[in-house]
Design a protein around this nucleic acid. Sequence first.
DNA 1: CTGTTAGCGCATTCAG
DNA 2: CTGAATGCGCTAACAG
Lengths: 347, 347
Amino acid sequence: MKNAVVTIKDVAKATGVSPSTVSRVIADNPRISPDTKKKVRKVMKDLGYHPNVNARNLVAKSTKAIGVVLPSSADKSLQNPFFPEVLRGIGSITHQLQYSMTLSSGGTESEIFTEVERMVYGSYVDGIILLYSRVNDRIVNFLREKDFPFVIVGKPYDHLNEITHVDNDNFTAGKDITSCLIQQGHERIAFIGGSRDLFVTMDREAGYEAALKEAGIAADKAYRIHTEFLKSGGREAVEQLLSLKVRPTGIVVTDDLMSLGVLSTLEELGVDVPADISLVSFNNVYLSEITSPSLTTVDIQIYQLGAQSAKALIEKTQTKDEPAKRIIIPHQIVHRDSVATSNGAGT
Amino acid sequence: MKNAVVTIKDVAKATGVSPSTVSRVIADNPRISPDTKKKVRKVMKDLGYHPNVNARNLVAKSTKAIGVVLPSSADKSLQNPFFPEVLRGIGSITHQLQYSMTLSSGGTESEIFTEVERMVYGSYVDGIILLYSRVNDRIVNFLREKDFPFVIVGKPYDHLNEITHVDNDNFTAGKDITSCLIQQGHERIAFIGGSRDLFVTMDREAGYEAALKEAGIAADKAYRIHTEFLKSGGREAVEQLLSLKVRPTGIVVTDDLMSLGVLSTLEELGVDVPADISLVSFNNVYLSEITSPSLTTVDIQIYQLGAQSAKALIEKTQTKDEPAKRIIIPHQIVHRDSVATSNGAGT
DNA sequence: CTGTTAGCGCATTCAG
DNA sequence: CTGAATGCGCTAACAG
């Protein structure tokens, strides 16, 4: 393979110093004379020396690596462009700080658990980022028990004040985007969300409710639909809404990918967006620019969610003092073409 | 952090054997009596022993880890659902074989290069999977020079017979899907592809041409459009096609995500799919089920692309004999609703 | 400012 | 079948 493995000793010999001196040069120890530093560095370069991580990790008891755990891949949700984007965000920080990132690869929940165990026990990584959040999660319990550094992207179900997490203010986001619709004169506004036991859904829904309330609009239970994430593109949800005696003129959908399905169904059923029904959504993934119409959506800054979580985690692994338990990434509404002023028709 | 770090020595002491015996039990060495094996294993469990990877890697000179290099994240293409899916495929194998996977995290091409250097020189990984393919790529050159194990998902530009790669038969796929259109009576068939210096595009286009030729249909240069991947959802491409004196009745688009953009533009311009124009595509990502209409597309088995590449790579790192240089994953057409019989109108 | 000595946790000779 | 000794490549006291 490699033409030879040049170690710290080789460099030492070639430079005429001791291995420890070389080691100190690598660490940029101030107690080494600039002169020898330069000499050693030159030799390192000439010989093509590169430190061996494993040896270093072994003694340092740190790997400068973080593990990223995706939801079980059985979950279709992995197809959500959300993930590549958080990974990019995480990567930006790991790269900058010279960390590496290891991905979980288990297919089922229990496979993933086993992997996390290995990561922790085998000292594969210094800390872990969880890209999902489930009720009473084994992995979270395990990590807490072991007191192993981890952060959650999203909102943890328990111990909200003890688990470091990076999230949006989904309540406010939901409220803001709903208000958008209200400001355009909409009053009959429906809500299509994912599973009811996802905090994202709940929070965004609560925001939706609050906006209605604030505007003095009565909430209608029939206008609120929860559907399996991605399930047949939200077709049922839409059909259900359209079968109502009084159709909504606006819909709040909790995810761009879901919105795509809703949009498709709406189109097939001959409902024009935004002329007949306005649509607003969340996430602002690339998708939302190229649908027809393009989506007015909440930019939740997925990239930042990733970056900040990595930053917080690494900080956690390095210093004794904990970072903030709750890190909120600001959101922002991106206005596109899926919203129109309500003509009040259909009342 | 951990309540203590239990090492091989602790297990040895507790069992009343020597460290080397414990080590042999871990390796399941046949020269150890079943009896002591059982005893040692029990103690390992009781004490909660877990081997330390770094120590092991250090002596074994192998990390049981593979690196996965994504295209530079500046590239919007990362938003393509293709990536999560290959990662899943890779993960299935790494998990099964108890390997771990490290993701590249560089933003720019040169950052990525530096990372790959680290991965290789620092023995972070045993091998590398490249999820992209560029002309005269620095990384490929580097890897070849170092004779470091790697495989490419897709088609390498040079040294086709020397670089292990996992790919589809894109020529045939292009031909097959185009034939689909032809069989439905279409004769004026356009092609919208990504950058011309991507092999995928070229191969699929060549297949498209071949299908036309075989059917005795004259190829029309004006029907062939190359556009920046994802650039404004292929809007320009579509407008260009529609401005033609004789409009096509069918379009072959080289990627599902691109198809979404094309579909949207078509709709905005009042062209009905498939009534006015039929559309076929490639990849069969989740998206293609929930567009309106849903897409007839080539299932290229992305998951398998990932899995087989991981398999080949690991094989490569373990045995002396090389796996096949060229591994082709079969494709298959998935018929959905974006294709209709040509009514021959518009001639 | 620099060299010497140990040892991280494990696998592997080489002896028995 | 098992134990003792050695070293992977590197860092960290401890001396000078």
